[in-house]
């Protein structure tokens, strides 16, 4: 059982993006929100503080916070960085995932 993992390239990108926000934000918050046709989707945000109930992880010097509510959904996830012709960004790989909705925004666990 593992919490969250980051691929090296995702880690590198996050570090770069976070250092560009130096002075404004020092953390990256990973969580979930209710959205899309099948229920819950992920979110990645900058954050300026660790809030009550947040779980603070230090991954190779990268400050990641996860809120309590989302912990359950994020267990075992791997975050990668992907580049396509159109866009680049982070993707959540869920080895435990059973189903995904048509729009790709939500997931069943």
């Amino acid at each position: 059982m593992q919490v969250l993992s980051l691929t090296p390239v995702a880690k590198e990108k996050m570090r770069g993006l976070l250092s560009a926000q130096a002075g404004k934000y020092s953390y990256i918050r990973i969580g979930t929100r209710t959205k899309g046709c099948a229920g819950v989707s992920y979110k990645i945000e900058f954050a300026d503080m660790v809030e009550m109930g947040d779980e603070h992880l230090n991954i190779d010097g990268l400050d990641i916070v996860i809120d309590n509510k989302s912990l359950l959904y994020l267990i075992g996830l791997v975050i990668d960085f992907k580049e396509t012709d159109l866009e680049s960004g982070f993707v959540f790989e869920n080895p435990n995932k059973k189903g995904e909705c048509g729009c790709g925004e939500s997931f069943f666990v």
Binding site: S41, I44, K82, V91, E105
Partner: peptide, 13 residues
């Protein structure tokens, strides 16, 4: 399979 690509957002508030 389509996969949603996420950007790091500003916090909602």
């Amino acid at each position: 399979m389509s996969q949603k690509i996420y950007q790091i957002d500003e916090p909602d508030y």
